[in-house]
């Protein structure tokens, strides 16, 4: 199996040279194989989200390389990158413009890539249905639907351009557990249907959830990778003290 995503020696420093300097990432490296699901766990400030935001270019790395599908990310234009990598955010409702219909939000990338209005509508409705929403939700506004439904729409939006990499940044953390279970089932369905065409990077502080859902796991602490490998292996027989402490803290 090939690596669809390789992160090599990423460093990220915020407020460089100032008193408030934070080394958010220190030599972070990990890789995601095609068709795999990689969990990233760690406490707040561990650098999980920063890694994701560097991959999606919402934050600039100070140093290091991201390789996507065998090509250095620096050689890929924004337009192309966002057809390959997509992200689902922690806050479902806030990730949609309150003044724009859900359907238009989901179809935004299609419209930006020159798909006609009528075809976009058709494809968006299909995506909504695939993500477990009735197609009438096209015309709803974000505040009219529940958080779980909004997150389904956000997943539909992320899938619109058939990305190869889907990053879920604490995508279920703000949801109730029963809703979380439904979203995980939806993601499992998406993985089953697309096989090695989709790889997921699943960022979460919920270790039990990561163990259930992911094949591999990366444990991060204070901007560094503590440990990485097979999810069950690491969570059941960790060799690192930090990981052991983290797992022992789960109630």
């Amino acid at each position: 199996m090939d690596n669809i995503l390789e992160v090599k020696n990423l460093n990220c420093i915020f407020n460089k040279g100032r008193k408030t300097q934070v080394n958010a990432l220190k030599d972070v490296s990990f890789e995601l194989k095609a068709g795999e699901c990689l969990g990233i766990i760690g406490e707040s400030g561990s650098g999980k989200s920063t890694s994701a935001r560097i991959i999606t270019r919402l934050v600039k790395a100070s140093d290091g390389e991201v390789v996507i599908d065998g090509r250095s990310s620096s050689d890929i234009s924004n337009k192309e990158l966002y057809k390959i990598v997509q992200m689902v955010f922690q806050t479902p409702v806030e990730s949609f413009n309150p003044r724009v219909k859900l359907g238009d939000g989901v179809g935004e990338s299609l419209r930006n890539n020159g798909v006609s209005k009528s075809e976009t509508k058709e494809r968006v409705e299909k995506l909504l249905v695939e993500c477990g929403l009735p197609k009438e939700y096209y015309d709803k506004y974000p505040h009219e639907v529940s958080g779980g439904e909004c997150q389904r729409a956000a997943i539909a939006r992320a899938l619109a351009n058939e990305p190869k990499i889907l990053i879920c940044d604490e995508a279920t953390s703000s949801l109730d557990v029963t809703v979380q279970k439904e979203i995980i089932a939806l993601l499992n369905g998406i993985r089953e249907k697309r096989g090695s065409d989709i790889s997921i990077m699943f960022i979460s502080h919920d270790i039990a959830l990561v163990q259930q859902f992911c094949d591999k796991v990366v444990v991060m602490n204070k901007g560094q990778v503590v440990e990485k490998g097979d999810a069950n292996e690491i969570i059941m027989n960790s060799k690192e003290d930090y990981t052991k402490k983290l797992i022992a803290s789960v109630l």
């Binding site: 557990v177 279970k181 270790i207 163990q211 059941m236």
Partner: peptide
Amino acid sequence: KKLMEAVPRIKVSN
């Protein structure tokens, strides 16, 4: 039952 089943629980051993 549904609520408790939805709570992910860590598996410590096989």
